[in-house]
């Protein structure tokens, strides 16, 4: 079992963006290494853990995959607040998903911490019918102080890189800024909770 001693950092990463842009597929590609065709709409919030290694330190990413559809989103807002990183996703072959980005940013500003790491992701670069040129996405990201990356969950392009980049950056930020919450064993372990757990299979299963 993963005890707190197994990892140095734990970061909460939340994915947002319009319905159908591929948030769940990005997460599935990263956590399970697969691309589920015909993925249905996410309802509510799905959450999972993935442990990665950065500079020989184990980092746990707690990934929250939210619903894109308005009618399934009513309980998602409080999940922004304690996020360390927010991934805002649009579909490069679908202009309306890009046009909604300012709305998403307003929501992020309203609910998320001002220190949150924000990443803009243009997904589905495997598609031939691109509507949003790369520079338009880059430009938008630069104007809003966000990292930018284009990905393909289907072809596994830049997906690993996206999450690893987040893990690395958050570790650096954390090292510099003591204000951010640290999930180290000595500080957040609640006494007695993990003492009797000895199975060590879960981390290997999750990675």
């Amino acid at each position: 079992m993963c005890t707190m001693e197994d990892f140095k950092f734990l970061f909460k990463v939340v994915l947002v963006g319009n319905a159908g842009v591929g948030k769940t597929c990005l997460v599935r590609r990263f956590t399970q290494g697969l691309f589920p065709p015909g993925q249905g709409a996410t309802i509510g919030v799905d959450f999972m853990i993935k442990t990665v290694e950065v500079d020989n330190d184990k980092v746990k990413l707690q990934i929250w995959d939210t619903a894109g559809q308005e009618r399934f989103r009513s309980i998602t807002q409080s999940y922004y607040r304690s996020a360390h990183a927010l991934i805002l996703v649009y579909d490069i072959s679908c202009q309306p998903t890009f046009d909604c980005l300012p709305d998403w940013l307003r929501e992020i500003e309203e609910y998320a911490s001002s220190k949150v790491l924000r990443i803009l992701v243009g997904n589905k670069i495997d598609r031939e019918d691109r509507e949003i040129p790369t520079f338009v996405g880059e430009d938008f990201a630069a104007r809003h102080n966000m990292y930018f990356l284009e990905t393909s969950a289907k072809e596994a392009e830049n997906v690993e890189k996206l999450f690893m980049k987040i893990a690395e950056d958050l570790m650096q930020v954390q090292a510099k800024n003591k204000d951010l919450p640290r999930y180290e064993s000595s500080t957040t372990n609640i006494s007695g909770r993990t003492s009797s757990v000895s199975d060590s299979s879960c981390c290997s299963k999750l990675t």
Partner: peptide, 17 residues
């Protein structure tokens, strides 16, 4: 999740789900 006692999950208030 942080304590590693839950590995995976989903939460909803949508009646169908």
């Amino acid at each position: 999740m942080s304590e590693g006692i839950v590995a995976d999950g989903t939460v909803t208030n949508e009646p169908g789900k």
